[in-house]
Design a protein around this nucleic acid. Sequence first.
DNA 1: TGCCTAAAATGAGCCAGATCAAATTAGAAC
DNA 2: GTTCTAATTTGATCTGGCTCATTTTAGGCA
Lengths: 248, 248
Amino acid sequence: MSKRRETPLEKIFIESHHCTIDLRLEMLSQAPFFKGLDPEMLREVNKRFSATHFEAGEMIYYEDEPALRLRVVVSGKVKLMRHTEEGKDVLIDMLKPGEFFGTLSHLGGEVYSETATSQTHTCILSIDSQAFRDILTQYPVVAVNVLDIMAGRLQASRDSLFELSTLPVDQRIARILYRLAEKFGEQDDEFGLLIQMPLTRKDLADMAATTTETASRIISRLKKDGIIHAGRQWIAIEDLQELETLSA
Amino acid sequence: MSKRRETPLEKIFIESHHCTIDLRLEMLSQAPFFKGLDPEMLREVNKRFSATHFEAGEMIYYEDEPALRLRVVVSGKVKLMRHTEEGKDVLIDMLKPGEFFGTLSHLGGEVYSETATSQTHTCILSIDSQAFRDILTQYPVVAVNVLDIMAGRLQASRDSLFELSTLPVDQRIARILYRLAEKFGEQDDEFGLLIQMPLTRKDLADMAATTTETASRIISRLKKDGIIHAGRQWIAIEDLQELETLSA
DNA sequence: TGCCTAAAATGAGCCAGATCAAATTAGAAC
DNA sequence: GTTCTAATTTGATCTGGCTCATTTTAGGCA
């Protein structure tokens, strides 16, 4: 039996016509914050966005840079992080197609509070934040949708805060894996529920507010216990049930 | 020179006519989320709110209780916390007049994710969450205001998460004190910038994700260094400048 | 198919902050 | 003023997870 020599992560096909007009419109029409907007308005709104393409690992914007645009992931995965002077990093969120990031604010003096990196090949739509605010007042249904999303994110952030304050590292890691599996999981016939995105031990550590070494030790244990499969930059959940139990 | 025998915290006058119609309307007109709404609309909107009165220490709602209403602080201070089965608590936020809490959600199955306690005598306005959503779609300017507030809260929550992940306890406490002073500080001629609200060492610990003992040790040190004054359930900042330096 | 390197795994020692235990007040109430 | 108790302080000890150092390896690449 020959060992698999490649990452099980999907290889995203690199084409320059990746970010087609069709895809853009399709994405916007399915984006949660435009739900309920009729096709006519949608086409109108679509004109105000412009598309950009990023390679895996490329920075989309930097922390402390003037924040002028709101962005939407069309395809690929985006990572949001904050950095410390002493080199500590905190991973704030991982985004998938349909999610927005950047700034909603219209004020001039704002800067981005995090760095956005494209984790894979990505196509990103962007719009001037003031133009987006115009859309919000023009289409109240969009404003309410965005509000619901922000409420959900606030909830998630407070959940993390709560867990960070009350749970030991191993439980935090278990919960993070569980959530990533829910959001990015795709069934892989060899390894189980594969988290479809490049994910290092350090990423995990930065999410759980721990160190790479500790994250690695915990992953090793989970592998030994047959709960997950993992390699370089990828993790697949073998026993989701047990993972949930662990995170209790 | 006789030692002061009482808390420097203001004694809120207890009157049953505390929460007058005038006060209600005045509060709503100044509430950040109704900024930009003309008086006519405001009067219209005001009708849909109802007022309730709470004693200091009373629960406004409990975690896991069905979440049906959105509330607004008219007068007094409100504390939001989450509790663990093992008795650990996390203090999520402290609110002052003009801030809202409760739920924005309209879905039936939602429950409150935190417990709200009135820290002082309070007057609270409340409205059915669906009715509030109607206001949002009816007055887009309100929706955008609320959105900005939510964005600010998300930012604040992520800031806390970041600080919790990267700073040692003493710096976290220094930052928390600094922020509380900004939000609740009132100049006291004897002690300096007094944080105008009952605030125990445990509250502080629950904000900083530490223990009462550690919070107490840090407060003791700050007192010894002449940076703050503190007693039972109250803290005043003597040297704000130095406190800011410490939190760097 | 083997080479090469960043990612991951592992070991050993250490420390900030938690826990456990006890003594001491601040300041409310009468 | 005196009383009374929950809030606070302080001390002593313990430990989860961090640090530092080193080895091992997955898997991209030619």
